[in-house]
């Protein structure tokens, strides 16, 4: 399981193994406003999967459902075969789902060090946490220089690095990233994408929500396109990247 899961998987052999994360027939609504209509998707261990879509397509809500911050009205979320919708967010986090939230959500008044260690809040293996902490410092030299600085004083790009480091500190089996490149300078966009790719090659499974399709598909293995609460396209990243239909999905539905 372990070595197999580290290899890049594709859509074909995904059917034969159990996916790490699976959303089945998800319907969601905020009051009278329905956000999801029967959404199905899955993420295999070892993959980078991106969920694409324009404004108000329901992308971020998908993330909130996986993390237990929003309850779907119907359908099931399975993580490693176990139904997790209905669990609280802390329970889900303890099962091994880490989060890099939208707009980073760094603890602004806590130091960089405290922010990193908050990522390991649910872990009890102190020794291993200390080791992971050292690894993070090596991985993010920029953060190492600023350990006693408050999180809120970092630049946007540094905060994004911190958010990713914080998620890694939890040793998650799946990392959910909500718009990790949003609002970053081009320099940091590249750094973040390279980092995502690198941690993936080291065995982390990544599910990311992105607006920026061109960027996300360059590093992802597979992608889904969400439009008005429905999955309208899915497939290998290369295929999606060159599919002209994706433009229509982004520019608006076919009313003209």
């Amino acid at each position: 399981m372990n070595t197999a899961s580290l290899a890049r998987t594709n859509g074909q052999n995904a059917a034969s193994t159990n996916p790490l994360l699976e959303l089945k027939d998800i319907d969601t609504a905020y009051g009278p406003i329905q956000v999801h209509f029967g959404v199905n998707l899955h993420v295999n261990a070892g993959e980078i999967v991106c969920l694409l879509g324009g404004n108000a397509s329901g992308k971020s809500t998908t993330m909130k459902i996986i993390l237990g911050l929003v309850r779907p009205r119907a359908g099931a979320v399975r993580f490693d075969g176990r139904v997790i919708n209905g669990l609280t967010t802390p329970q889900i986090v303890r099962l091994g789902i880490g989060s890099v939230p939208e707009s980073r959500r760094i603890f602004a008044q806590m130091t960089v060090r405290e922010n990193l260690l908050m990522g390991a809040y649910h872990r009890r293996d102190r020794h291993a946490v200390a080791e992971d902490y050292e690894r993070m410092l090596a991985l993010f030299p920029r953060l190492k220089e600023r350990l006693q600085q408050r999180g809120g004083t970092l630049s946007g790009g540094e905060q994004q690095m911190l958010a990713i480091g914080r998620a890694l500190m939890g040793r998650p089996r799946l990392i959910c990233m909500d718009e990790p490149t949003m609002g970053l300078s081009p320099l940091y966009v590249d750094r973040v994408l390279a980092l995502i790719q690198q941690i993936n090659t080291q065995g982390y499974t990544i599910f990311m929500v992105e607006q920026n399709a061109n960027l996300a598909l360059q590093i992802a293995h597979r992608g889904y396109v969400l439009q008005n609460g429905r999955i309208v396209m899915e497939g290998q990243a290369d295929a999606l990247l060159n599919d002209p239909e994706i433009q229509d999905a982004y520019l608006g539905e076919g009313v003209s």
Partner: peptide, 19 residues
């Protein structure tokens, strides 16, 4: 500066990681 320091790659085993 390099995005990730090549010498210090992560060696965390996610399958063994949780709890």
């Amino acid at each position: 500066e390099p995005v990730v320091q090549p010498a210090t790659r992560l060696t965390i085993d996610p399958a063994a990681g949780v709890l």
